[in-house]
Design a protein around this nucleic acid. Structure first.
Lengths: 156, 156
DNA sequence: TTCAAAATCACCCTAAAGTATGAAGCCTGT
DNA sequence: ACAGGCTTCATACTTTAGGGTGATTTTGAA
């Protein structure tokens, strides 16, 4: 309970304590000032220095640091001997039903015309699907598409 | 010349000016203090607040922005590494070295021209190899060849 | 050494694949 | 209702793949 409170309000507590210390120092300096005499300059100077420090400390502690993002690409080697479809990867490709069907038939070595026959659509349609599919897989040829899809675990 | 100097020493100049202003305020406050009377508290408090602000401002201005490294995971899809070539099947195909090489590059999705580049031979040579290879695998297209070879265990 | 694969390349021609662009109908979610 | 993605198809064009044929050079094994 208490420790949790301390944890969540750590910064506020530390800040409060710091202020208390500062006020104490202030009082102490005031005392000194009265005892020693009329050294306004020294008094003010000390306060200035101390509170400048406090300000710096506060800013460093409490202010959100400007973040400079450095992007480091970390390769992850995904091997897929288990013929379980990697649905995650499949989702990320944004492939549509039809495009996947075309891709699957491509992987079986069918020509576009044969695929058109299987799917009961025209050759042009198959071409459109394949073109889209190549874009989504970021490849140039059907052989590349099949290779990549298999590596990704989209195809068995 | 001068503008360059200002640019390169901008922060120092600003800092100096800020200090000057602070000292001026200090002096002004001192004057006020003398005129108004013995309000040590107000004087000290004002200085404390002002210099705390100065400290915060300084820290924010001069502090180096923290670098935050964001690791972006970039998946590299790798297929089965523990793959054993089915040499028996490979023998039965009667494939030559070169034909196998061409087949392997085909499986990677390379075009005939790209394969020619890799093997330091002409496009025509690759074509003849591929034609022979298709015969031996009893297929009509490169995609079929790759598919069949993989099923046979010739390719990974 | 000899001889048959293997490897290399060339031409020509057709088939298939791929690119670019446009367009219409159909769902889906806002 | 409207935007946007999906599916479908078309036309036109370029590039790549594949088939057929023939030829030369290497090479490996009998």
């Amino acid at each position: 309970m208490i420790s949790k409170f301390i944890k969540t309000h750590k910064q506020s507590i530390v800040y409060g304590l710091a202020m208390a210390v500062m006020l104490f120092v202030l009082k102490w300096l005031e005392l000194k000032f009265i005892i020693i005499g009329h050294s306004f300059e020294i008094y003010a100077g000390l306060i200035a220095v101390i509170f400048t420090g406090l300000g710096i400390w506060l800013a460093l502690k409490l202010a959100q640091p400007k973040e400079k993002t450095v992007i480091v690409e970390k390769p992850i080697y995904v091997s897929n001997e288990n013929f379980v479809v990697n649905y995650e990867a499949l989702q990320q490709t944004n492939m549509s039903r039809r495009e996947l069907e075309v891709l699957e038939l491509m992987a079986e070595g069918l020509s576009n015309l044969e695929i058109a026959g299987r799917l009961f659509v025209s050759l042009n349609t198959v071409k459109t699907h394949s073109a889209r599919l190549f874009e989504k897989l970021d490849v140039k040829r059907r052989t590349q598409a099949v290779d990549k899809a298999k590596r990704m675990g989209i195809l068995k």
